[in-house]
Amino acid sequence: MTFSENIKTVCVIDDDKIYVYGLKKLISIKQLCPNLIEFENGKLAIDFLANPENQATLPDIIFLDINMPVMDGWDFMDNYVKIKPQLGKKITVYMISSSISNEDIDRAKSISDVSDYLIKPVSPNKLIELFNMAA
């Protein structure tokens, strides 16, 4: 497996350090993407995305957690939708959470900018599939 040519940068927004470590490791083992940026809450991610200086390093995929302090996944999406027009790039957003509540699943599916909702943990094969879909 080689890096997909289209996916250059992945962004993970999650306060669970072990999960972020695992995701990072898996992406590197499977050689899915060369760059990974991580934020431990939605606020930090929005600040990064909204900053015009970061235009060149915007991610192709965002893996977004729901439960986070300061700004959770839902608030992130509200803010993301607002700044999306000024981002000169198509970004695929996947929501990934350990919540199996139907309320969360339905809510995520009702957001058109969320491409899919996945329950943790994501298996290596599923991860590859997500990259292929976003490519």
């Binding site: 669970d16 999960y19 695992g22 083992i29 350990s98 509540s101 943790k120 943990p121 290596p124």
Partner: peptide, 21 residues
Amino acid sequence: HNLRSHSGNLQFMVNIFEEDI
């Protein structure tokens, strides 16, 4: 939810452990 997030991580680590690392 809380047990699931831990068990999820555990499963995740085991998955990676099984990879060539």
